[in-house]
Design a protein around this nucleic acid. Structure first.
Length: 230
DNA sequence: ATGACGATTTACT
DNA sequence: GTAAATCGTCATA
């Protein structure tokens, strides 16, 4: 098997964050280690961060610091941040140069280098939680699995030989009806912006970090919050 | 210099 | 369901 075809068109990354958040579903995040080993996974969950007007965004109000600087770079740049004293999360910058929009990669379906991912996630510990669906089912989990940290913040995903995006070899991507959406995770501080449906996932995929929106007690389970009826 | 907090994960009750 | 882990980042002084 050859590598899946790399995305080299910067226009793919340019423009609206919600559009790219949907467009990244079904694309492949590829990490090439210095050993030559390839780690890869299909993106199955994303969140859009709209930038200056989005109270949940690190760049809210155009807050521009050493950390957020890559968000203001050209589309296709990686923005990786460190949080909770122990975790890294990765974004794909979109918008346009100077406009800090980005898409958080929240979950992958592992397709290459799975044994190495297990090592990166669980190190010497026993493999108790090391089933495939637990390797990359969260924004910090996938960064640990693919060994992505702050060194990659500011890297150009269009040209990097260590981290990039690709199409699946067979060209598969989810049909619009297979994409569910709901409120973003962990942004309760963002007021009215917390409720906006800017989280997107492949409906029913086992690798999604939170399979469904919280079910209202006593109500009928409607499944994925935005899923179209069959 | 200091203090509060976090786009999370894990373990435990 | 709740709580701990753990430290870079940012605002304030």
């Amino acid at each position: 098997m050859s590598d899946p075809p790399r995305i080299t068109d910067r226009d793919f990354f340019t423009g609206d964050a919600a559009r790219l958040a949907r467009g990244l579903l079904g694309r492949v995040l590829v990490r090439r280690l210095e050993t030559g080993e390839t780690l890869a996974g299909v993106i199955v969950e994303t969140e859009a961060y709209l930038g200056a007007r989005d109270a949940a965004s690190h760049a809210f109000g155009n807050r521009r610091t050493a950390r957020t600087e890559p968000m203001f770079a050209q589309p296709g740049t990686a923005y990786v941040y460190f949080t909770y004293g122990m975790h890294h999360c990765m974004n794909v910058v979109c918008g346009q140069l100077g406009v800090p929009a980005a898409v958080l990669i929240r979950a992958l379906r592992p397709i290459a280098g799975i044994e190495r991912m297990r090592c990166n996630r669980f190190h010497d510990r026993g493999g108790a939680g090391a089933r495939d669906a637990n390797l990359c089912s969260g924004p910090a989990k996938l960064c640990a699995a693919l060994n992505i940290d702050k060194r990659f913040s500011g890297v150009d995903l269009v040209v990097s030989d260590e981290l990039w995006l690709a199409e699946l070899a067979d060209g598969w991507s989810p049909k619009p009806a297979a994409i569910a959406s709901g409120p973003r995770i962990g942004v309760e501080y963002a007021g009215e912006w917390a409720a906006k449906p800017l989280r997107f996932w492949v409906s029913g995929d086992a690798n999604v970090s939170r399979p469904r929106a919280p079910r209202p007690r006593g109500k009928v389970d409607a499944g994925d919050s935005d899923q179209k009826p069959v």
